[in-house]
């Protein structure tokens, strides 16, 4: 037990937990995007995929575990931010970013926005009453995304997600202690590519529904 508290209370321990919990959610995003792309195949394929997921007996336990992991990530992020602000004490009158990019400086902001988005997202789709829809979840998704303001909100949030991931993914490797003159530049490029793929992949779906399919079937 003391070993566990060690990870929750020391600075490097918290880093490890942030990295592990974040990494789980990156894997979730990869799975989520892969599945969601079935939207492009039409109502049968997408609804079948949704049906397949919701009929899994392990769905509820997995959802609970993912939620705990997410809440750990958010809780630690807030605590770390408070600790870091306290550690600075008096603010600089004039401070240069010293080369630290926007993404790395804004993790708490982008993170909290993503958390807010997740609630909005769940309310709209998972708890959006798709059972009553003619075309089930497919119909609900297409209907929601035909509203320009709804699609644009999703685009905005995907930009935020991309910014969070650009720093997050490569950061995991540094935190785990994997930094190497040859591999690290490669890791950073792959991290950037993965962040772009995830953000644009998710952003493509509302755009597709709104501008290409125009909400039609």
């Amino acid at each position: 037990m003391s070993r566990l508290s060690h990870f929750f209370t020391t600075s490097i321990g918290q880093k490890q937990l942030m990295a592990i919990t974040g990494l789980v959610w990156v894997l979730f995003l990869i799975g989520h995007l892969s599945g969601n792309l079935s939207l492009l195949l039409g109502p049968e394929a997408f609804n079948a995929y949704a049906e397949f997921l919701s009929s899994q007996p392990l769905l509820i336990p997995v959802e609970i575990v993912l939620s705990i992991i997410l809440l750990t990530h958010v809780f630690l992020a807030i605590r770390i931010t408070i600790q870091n602000r306290t550690a600075r004490g008096t603010k600089y009158m004039h401070k240069d970013a010293s080369g630290a990019n926007f993404a790395s400086r804004s993790m708490i902001l982008t993170g909290l926005l993503i958390f807010a988005f997740m609630i909005i997202h769940l309310m709209n789709f998972k708890f959006g009453g798709y059972e009553d829809h003619d075309l089930k979840l497919y119909g609900l998704v297409m209907e929601k995304f035909t509203h320009p303001e709804f699609s644009l909100m999703y685009l905005g949030f995907m930009l935020v997600l991309g910014a969070h991931l650009v720093h997050a993914i490569q950061s995991v490797f540094q935190t785990f202690g994997w930094n190497h003159p040859i591999y690290t530049p490669l890791i950073k490029r792959i991290s950037l590519a993965l962040a772009l793929i995830l953000a644009t992949g998710f952003a493509y779906l509302p755009l597709w529904a709104w501008l290409i399919k125009k909400g039609g079937v």
């Binding site: 600075s11 770390i80 600790q83 870091n84 550690a87 600075r88 010293s98 630290a100």
Partner: peptide
Amino acid sequence: EGFGNCTNTQACEVE
């Protein structure tokens, strides 16, 4: 001692 947590921004290396 109350130092903050590293968030891998790399500003330290630059300065």
